[in-house]
Design a protein around this nucleic acid. Sequence first.
DNA 1: CTCCGTTTTGCAAATCATTTGCATTTATAT
DNA 2: ATATAAATGCAAATGATTTGCAAAACGGAG
Lengths: 142, 142
Amino acid sequence: MDVYIIEKQLRNKGYKLTEQRSILIDILNKSETPCTAQEVYEAARQKCNINFSTVYRNLELLSKLKIITSLNIKQGVTHFEIMGAGHHHHAICKGCGEVQVIEICPCHSLDSRMLEQLGFTPTELKFEIYGYCSKCNIEQNR
Amino acid sequence: MDVYIIEKQLRNKGYKLTEQRSILIDILNKSETPCTAQEVYEAARQKCNINFSTVYRNLELLSKLKIITSLNIKQGVTHFEIMGAGHHHHAICKGCGEVQVIEICPCHSLDSRMLEQLGFTPTELKFEIYGYCSKCNIEQNR
DNA sequence: CTCCGTTTTGCAAATCATTTGCATTTATAT
DNA sequence: ATATAAATGCAAATGATTTGCAAAACGGAG
Ligand SMILES: [Mn+2]
Ligand SMILES: [Mn+2]
Ligand SMILES: [Zn+2]
Ligand SMILES: [Zn+2]
């Protein structure tokens, strides 16, 4: 994903491109897996002076602009990931919490007529697989 | 769902059947949609003297015993629902937060070979549809 | 039914993620 | 370079959930 496009999008809407903001975008953009605010903060403070509330405020802004999306993968902490990384889903290990990106997608086979009957207009589909990753699976069988 | 079975299951494992506990189970069992701890608490206090920590401790216990399951439908609050109510999924309105139970299920069409390749052993599949319910949809178009 | 050991409860305080108010700093257009 | 709106840092607030501990309730044994 090209950060330049995101940055232009921000400027066009009147948002400023601060050092903190572009570092945050870069971190989220490079991450292979969804990040928590904590993780983003840890990574960002290596590169600039930054405060936790700046992280949160930016995560909120980027979510609002649909540059990132938030996932309620785990209770108590929100995860964020960049959008436009291609449609995919997640496999979440209940042992170690590891998140794997998976290409399995059930969305195609959806019968949307049923939703229409309910008068429900879908905007997002979330699909997560929980279980045990190879590492934790072995440990369980001991 | 028969509460009697659940209660027997608890006794068999050495857990006591307190007034609060059976009221909580009853509330969760009768609810059509997933409940938050808050909602369960509100309902329970109508029927007995009960404290918030009792609610949380029981929700945790019932989850551990797989009598209920927890859902991270919404950021910041956990929802709980009774298991064995038949396999189903949820449509969550981003306007009012209403949760509808839906029968659409993408799980059957899953290609589990892909997961096996990853060495991942699935235990639960979660699938949620977000969007706008009929009521909120109309309001949006004004 | 009463007694006992164990579990569970209520209450108050602690945690942890996230949010907010406000004074100060920074980015961008002119 | 200057003006102005937007963004940041800091400290305090919030809201959900968790925890320690003493008192109360449960369930089995006698
Ligand atoms: Mn999909
Ligand atoms: Mn299903
Ligand atoms: Zn694992
Ligand atoms: Zn709605």
